[in-house]
Simulated assay, not measured.
Amino acid sequence: MTQRANLAFFGLLVMLLSSFVFATAANAIPATTKVGDVIEVQLSQLNPTQPSIGYDQVFYKLGRFQVDLKKQFDEICEANGQKGLESFNEQSVQADRDSFSCKEAIGSRANEMKTVVLAPDNNYYLTDGHHTFNTFWHMQGGGSTFPIHVVVTHDYRELADMQAFWQAMQQDGNVWLFDLNNQAIAAEQLPASLGMENFANDAYRSLMYFSRKVSWAKPKQPVPFLEFYWAKELKPLIDLGNYDLSDMDSYVQAITDAADIILNLDTDSLGGSGLSAVEMGQMKEFKAKTLSKLQTEKGKLFYSLAYKAQQ
């Protein structure tokens, strides 16, 4: 190799190493970050802690955002702990917070925001918000670099290694390590990134979303992965393969049949949670009005099925 070639190769190597160091520094967690902080991240910086999502839930939001731009900006404000949208216009850009205004300052409602933990590998792990942030990833104006604020709930950086991290995450209930068949998986099998294509589609998780306030309601202090515990309980009890979840009437029938099961469950450890069905939000009676609302032209199930039909 000539001297000129050697110099060119050396220059390229330095450039690549510099880029790597810069990228690593840019993604590193600042040493001053602590539990309780409201921090800004890009969606690409968040590592998932569950292997699946309910696609139909994400489809609802994406379908609604297509026809209701105000709702889209409202959701962004809410996710940033700002209560909701104050004002926007035709020039407003989803990723540019200076182009629209929210009702409160960032982090004003930190207890309602999505959450992350800090790991020994100096990365952020998302513990709540997989559906919302997958929506932001795929929506118009979103994407992997979309900026969002989250709340730090745990700092595990002082643990010896990632094995100790995942053990602590399981002990604290901050990770869901079950596949679509309720079989345990290893942490290494979790998705490496947000983006719906990286997640399995759990139809029972979507079922629980649309069943909310029909046969169950979120408790005042819900456990992490609440809907997954419900889904885990229901999977042996109702076969969604018997329904056409692209058809409104069939989907409504699935919700109705699931409601009958939910309302009659008598267990002290729903889905292995250690909590009873009542403690996990079981309602006393079926709410037909809520189910009816899902089917209207502005209902969640209507938007979801309309968007799904486009795919």
Score class of each variant (00 low, 15 high):
T2R: 13
A5N: 12
V14A: 09
M15R: 13
S19P: 01
A25G: 14
A26W: 00
P30W: 07
P30D: 13
Q45V: 02
L46K: 00
P48A: 06
T49G: 07
S52E: 06
Y60W: 11
L69A: 14
D74R: 07
E75T: 10
G84D: 02
L85C: 06
Q91L: 14
S92I: 00
D96G: 10
R97I: 14
S99W: 02
A105D: 15
R109M: 09
M113E: 06
V116P: 02
L118S: 03
P120Y: 04
Y124G: 05
Y125E: 00
Y125K: 05
G142A: 08
S144L: 09
P147R: 12
T153A: 09
M162G: 01
G173L: 11
A186M: 11
R205C: 02
M208H: 06
A217F: 05
P219C: 10
Q221I: 11
P224L: 08
E227T: 12
K232M: 11
P236V: 08
L237R: 13
I238G: 00
G241L: 11
Q253P: 06
A254G: 09
N264L: 03
S269M: 13
L270C: 07
S276C: 07
K287Q: 13
L291T: 08
K293I: 06
Y307M: 05
Q311G: 15
